[in-house]
Design a binder for these strands. Structure first.
Length: 488
RNA sequence: CGGGGUAUGGCUCAAUUGGCUAGAGCAUCUGGUUUGGGACCAGAGGAUUGUGGGUUCAAGUCCCACUACCCCGACCA
């Protein structure tokens, strides 16, 4: 705990890892690629969950739960879907172990499953298998369901929160009578994600649509939000897919419309995952550790007493508890840390590492002056504030921090985004962040640019300005600029 | 799966390039002094040097194999 964190400049990757681990959010698991989310990390995830869940309910969705294990045959019903996920599936082949002659525990070959089960990498197939029975008439539509679950994707190169073999997420799966209604739903949920990431996580995003090669396996159109991390790389923080009738056809889900005609239903799916935790770390943290937006901080304010003798502590505790109560009346979560085994300096560093937005220090000096010291985590600024009206001061400061984090991240993104018109310029600027450039619209060109520069098209922004130009790679005509970046 | 690297008390590293009882900082415990930015002093405990084999009078150090982890690529919410 006493060791210094590596700085962002030194080694971004290591810096990120150390914050995730030392701020007590997560650790590596015994199974390579998996992750243990520790209580502090989970507390943040729970706050995210709650906020998102409220938003889903407010838009008419209900929660349900579907099985973890998916029969292999389900997965193969939608051709491009299985192709997209086949390479990273965990497969259950047996249902029993036994002890052999050497006393070792081995798989019982007699307990082989007739049909292998896949640990869900996503739940479209198992859900649509149920929807088939749930949907008969237009009266059953729209069907708006969300699931909170874990999924497994056997990634080759895992990274805490960003890409783990098992991760937690929510996946919404909806069914609609018309294509228009489904597209509207997909876009609406993208707006919900945007609202959440920008207003709760304080991270600005670009809403857009994916190119064909970056599209979700089985989708007709993939919408996404893309955020910029502090190394200029892009992180997809949420996706929403218009699935057309692909899954309805694969699972034969038809409904009778008002005229009694049978039609395949139209579908969407959308999700955000614990990857958001990674975004939260990379977007705001500094070289002292995690920086949490107040709306998501499990502890928003910590009060640290500074004293010499036990008698002093008693007086300080009385004042601290008064402050604590007045803050809690405003719905602010407060921790009073009167732990006698650690010194104030240690506590300051510790709560900075953990990203607590506001620290209040309280000592004899303050008692005499009728003040407290308020320290902001985002700016590291310290001010002496009168004890009188402390609750209002803190409440306002929390709002200021929330706002400042967003604005700081936005300013960073703006200063690391530029328009380019030539390939040479592109190669230079792509090292710094997002690049807005013309592209001829073909997957071949996209691939060539990726091979040469490691950058991909993150998205074609929604409501993009239409502007005639020439593709930076082929010189062919282009109708609009798209966003390129290196991505996680 | 390809390319590179690492493996030494709980953690981070050292050990004269093969030489004596494997050292230090952090952490832990004890006592004292302290408390407004990760304190200080004194003392204590804690290691089959990843595993297996080889070379040598002598191996943490050299050689071979295995295993694990990290970084870079392919894959990706």
């Amino acid at each position: 705990m006493a060791e210094k964190l590596p700085t962002r400049e030194e080694n971004y990757s290591e810096w990120y890892n150390q914050i995730a681990i030392k701020a007590d959010l997560a650790e590596h698991s015994a199974v390579k690629g998996c992750m243990v989310i520790k209580p502090y990390g989970y507390a943040i995830w729970e706050k995210m969950q709650r906020a998102l869940d409220d938003m889903f309910k407010a838009t008419g969705h209900v929660n349900a739960y579907f099985p973890l294990l998916i029969p292999k045959s389900f997965l193969s019903k939608e051709a491009s879907h299985v192709e997209g996920f086949a390479k990273e599936c965990a497969v259950v082949t047996h249902y029993r172990l036994k002890t052999n002659d050497k006393g070792e525990i081995v798989v019982d070959e007699n307990a082989k499953l007739e049909e292998e089960l896949i640990v869900r990498p996503t739940s479209e197939t198992i859900i649509w298998n149920s929807y088939k029975n749930w949907i008969q008439s237009y009266r059953d539509l729209p069907l708006l369901i969300n699931q909170w679950a874990n999924v497994v994707r056997w990634e080759m190169r895992p990274r805490l929160f960003l890409r783990t073999v098992e991760f937690l997420w929510q996946e919404g799966h909806t069914a609609h009578a018309t294509a228009d209604e489904a597209v509207t739903e997909a876009k609406k949920m993208l707006d919900v994600y945007t609202d959440f990431v920008e207003n709760w996580m304080a991270i600005p995003v670009i809403k857009g649509v994916k190119t064909e090669s970056e599209r979700f396996a089985g989708a007709v159109e993939t919408y996404c939000i893309e955020a910029m991390m502090q190394d200029g790389k892009a992180l997809q923080t949420g996706t929403s897919h218009f699935l057309g009738q692909n899954f309805a056809k694969a699972f034969d889900v038809k409904f009778a419309d008002k005229e009694g005609k049978l039609e395949y239903v139209w579908a969407t799916s959308w999700g955000v995952s614990t990857r958001l935790m990674g975004a939260l770390i990379m977007a705001h943290s500094d070289d002292s550790g995690l920086v949490l937006p107040p709306k998501l901080a499990p502890t928003q304010v910590v009060i640290v007493p500074i004293y010499k003798e036990a008698t002093e502590l008693e007086t300080l505790t009385a004042v601290a508890n008064t402050i604590k109560k007045s803050l809690e009346l405003k719905g602010i979560s407060v921790k009073y840390d009167d732990d006698d085994t650690q010194r104030p300096g240690w506590k300051f560093a510790e709560y900075e590492l953990k990203g607590v937005p506001i620290r209040i220090a309280l000592g004899a000096r303050d008692l005499k002056n009728g003040t407290v010291e308020i320290a902001r985590r985002d700016t590291k600024e310290k001010i002496n504030s009168p004890l009188e009206g402390i609750a209002e001061t803190v409440e306002n400061t929390l709002q200021l921090i929330q706002k400042n984090l967003y604005e700081r991240a936005l300013a960073f993104r703006q200063s690391h985004t530029c328009e380019v018109n030539t390939l040479a310029e592109f190669k230079e600027k792509i090292e710094q962040g997002f690049v807005s450039a013309h592209w001829d619209g073909t997957a071949e060109t996209e691939l060539k640019i990726k091979e040469e520069t490691k950058a991909t098209i993150r998205c074609i922004p929604l409501n993009n300005t239409q502007e005639k130009g020439k593709c930076i790679y082929t010189g062919k005509p282009s109708a609009q600029r798209v966003i390129f970046a290196k991505a996680y």
